[in-house]
Design a protein around this nucleic acid. Sequence first.
DNA 1: GGCGTAACGGTTGAC
DNA 2: GAGTCAACCGTTACG
Length: 384
Amino acid sequence: MVVEASAISDLDSYLTSDMDSSLSGAFGETNQLGGVFVNGRPLPGQVRQRIIEMSMMGVRPCDISRQLRVSHGCVSKILARYNETGSIMPGAIGGSKPRVTTPKVVQHIRELKQRDPGIFAWEIRDRLTSDGICDKYTVPSVSSISRILRNKIGALPTALLPINAPDLQMHSSYNSASTPNHGSAARNHHHSLQSGSQRGTMNGECGSTSYPSNNNNEMTSDECNQLYSASLYQAAAYSAAAAAAITAHQLQHNTASTAVIPHFSEQATRTNWSNGVQSSNLDSLVFPFHSSANLMMAPHQPTSLPSHSNKAFRPIPSPTHFSPYPLHNPTSKTTAFLNPPLLDCASNSHRPNLAFQQQQHQRAAQHDQQDCQPDTDSKALLSA
DNA sequence: GGCGTAACGGTTGAC
DNA sequence: GAGTCAACCGTTACG
């Protein structure tokens, strides 16, 4: 494959002016190929972009490595990342993992526990995802839920517990984290102890009963129910709005490639993704679209793009965990709006080819299928 | 020889 | 302000 002449001339500028300027002032090291790099810091955006461009021209990774004097491992990583996510941008460096046990999650756990004191932590975990409070990437672990039950929620009021179950009261935290096999039997037994009226109370028909009198719970059950209903309503409304917008857009353009709700479409068109990556300075690397998922979760929030000052924003949940197809799951908050090239109508040159997208789609479907299988830990626990 | 990837030492930013 | 932690980076070596 012949490399365009302009590409070769650009190459020289990368290896001289751009690379040197971006690394000036930093302590640069030299790799085996003679290229300069800063350990721990990403390659300049232009070099990253060049790697993608040369790859799309048909240049072999080993040749890209030699010509740009970037290690083949790095070329491999950048290309793999691009193929997986469609983004050439480096990930966010530093910072802490966002907390998954947000007040909203804790509140929902409290709700579930108060509705059904015999519920297990693993059941709560399932409910958090099925109720739309969390997705599979942000749902707390069983141990985290157990810790919340133990530390933040504490003992339930006796009024909400079965009359003949003082032992269950004592061991409620243990039961919450019990294994499914033991849990089912114990829980059935637990429920069998309840009278009809008690069961009704435990199922969330709280009426005006005040919440536990412990210091951690100041909200009434009515308020909890209102919050819960509102959150469900909101989630449903968001999903419906997103689905409607996507469908309308798809009908209008007969394509899935730019299926975004207007809220995000505005951002996508306002920011030229190609321009965004043509930064000669490493520090000017930005993440034009990575806040989309958050905005999807909270569309009432300001729509300002993540700026350089917001570079700590955790950009990509997991490159392998979302589909390049925006319509793969229109109601999903995490899979539909995170792929920059698919959001940007003007950046077709940066889009992975169709065959690759189809392959990715299949992989995503397989991945989803695998996610529906019982996890190995549960299997082990069941067989134990 | 080309490629994918684990290991490594380093940087970064939140806590 | 320093320390810790967990994310990221590119390079290197290995299969």
